[in-house]
Computed example of a mutant assay.
Amino acid sequence: MSHSPLLFLLLLLSYVLYLVIGAFVFSTLEQPYEDQLREKVEDLWSEFLKTHHCLSEEHLDDFLRKALFVRSFGVSVQRNISGFEVKWDFVSSLFFTGTTLTTIGYGHPVPISLCGKIFCLFYSVIGIPFTLSVLSIVARNLLFLLRDKPIRVLHLQCNFARIKLEWIYAAVVVSFLSLLFFFIPAVVFNAIEENWGYIDALYFCFISLSTVGLGDYVPGEQSGQRMPALYKLLVICYLLVGMIAVFIVVEILKSLLNCDRLFNLFLFGCDDSQRAEEMERNPPYDSEFPYVQKHDETRRRRVPHSVSPTEKSYGTINPSFS
């Protein structure tokens, strides 16, 4: 009897527990800061009303509600805005399409018109699978050129186990890509964005390339930035190339950890015999010696029984010994 249903139930319970632990930790860390900010807002509200006696609390509340509603669409309510802060020029629209089709989705800005929302639906239905497929294909081609070929050459020329070569390669590549697409870009964003610290910039890089895209940090939104159009174009290139790097890391880890076999443990349609057949079809690499494929017994050349006694026979017992 297969244990897949029990393992599947255990997997679901583990995920629910993981969600509960995350919610508890976030609530413990963030709620005190939320209470402090709420107290500051209440103090500012009371001080502003005391200073401006002619303004009623209802009018102030209505104005702030409308201003925040407009702000949620990416439109600033400040009057001293420059032409570079227009949210739907061509470069900003290109930034929006790039972040939408990569599923990052900062939410700043968002379509305002009804036609824009409808077009966004159909555009994303086609564009999101297309974009992710292109990025995945590029990542796999790069893996073939930069991993499979070098490892195959080293495996043939050096008497070294392939699995060890793969682990060494994975450690080097993951370290290099982390430095190239997380730690170094965080230094650049820290220098360009005045209100971002280094941890904020590193947080932005991870949230963006993991396609979470919370939208609390969006590059190129500061007033008076130099060459904002070029800056946003470079950010788009960084996000696309960075996601390819993330795909490469995911493929490397999936190959090393053999995730397909692990997933089969939780599938109802994959019983123990099927898993055993999968293990036979994909034997693990020997940790010390290179893997050599065994010959199939059914492919051995069969010699007919009519072989003369003077000829050597390898398929049957030689009649001369009978």
Rank of each mutant, 00 (worst) to 15 (best):
V138R: 06
L121K: 00
V235H: 13
H305R: 07
F247K: 15
E57G: 04
K254C: 15
L257M: 12
N159T: 08
Q274L: 04
G107Q: 03
S124N: 01
S2D: 14
I248G: 13
L142H: 04
S92E: 08
F73K: 06
F24R: 11
P32K: 00
R65Y: 08
I112E: 04
V174T: 15
Y217M: 08
L64E: 08
T131L: 08
Q225V: 13
F263T: 13
S255C: 11
N264E: 14
V172L: 10
I248T: 14
F181Y: 03
R261F: 05
S124E: 00
I252E: 13
D216I: 15
S308Y: 09
G242D: 03
H305D: 10
G105Q: 05
F289S: 14
G215F: 04
V212N: 03
E251Q: 15
K312L: 07
T310H: 12
F206E: 09
N80H: 08
V212W: 01
M1H: 02
F63Q: 14
S4F: 02
F144K: 15
L121C: 02
P185W: 03
A67V: 06
I184K: 01
T211D: 00
T316R: 07
G107F: 02
L29C: 09
Y285N: 11
R140D: 12
E251D: 15
N282R: 15
P228S: 07
F8C: 06
L256Q: 11
P290H: 08
T102R: 01
R299V: 10
K294Y: 00
L239D: 00
L10M: 00
L55Y: 08
A186Y: 09
Y291D: 06
F176H: 14
L180A: 14
L55V: 14
G107T: 05
I199F: 12
P290N: 08
Y169K: 06
F95I: 01
D271G: 11
L209Y: 04
L154W: 07
G105N: 02
S76P: 02
I248S: 13
F204Q: 03
P283Q: 02
F8P: 03
Y285T: 09
F26W: 12
H3F: 00
V75M: 11
Q157D: 11
E221F: 09
L256Y: 09
K66D: 03
L55S: 03
V41K: 12
H295Y: 12
P309Y: 05
V153N: 05
Q78M: 11
K117V: 05
C54F: 12
S223T: 11
P228F: 06
S133T: 15
I112H: 05
I317F: 12
P5S: 00
V77D: 11
F321W: 10
L135Y: 04
A67E: 08
S178M: 10
F63I: 15
F176V: 15
V125R: 00
F95R: 01
T310D: 10
I207P: 01
L177M: 14
I236T: 07
L256F: 07
S2K: 05
F289D: 14
F8T: 07
I118G: 02
L49E: 07
V75Y: 11
I118A: 03
D35N: 15
R65F: 07
P283G: 04
D286I: 04
D272C: 03
I199Q: 10
S113T: 15
R261G: 08
G127F: 00
K294H: 00
E166H: 12
N195R: 10
I192D: 06
S82R: 13
D260G: 05
L240P: 07
S273V: 13
F119L: 01
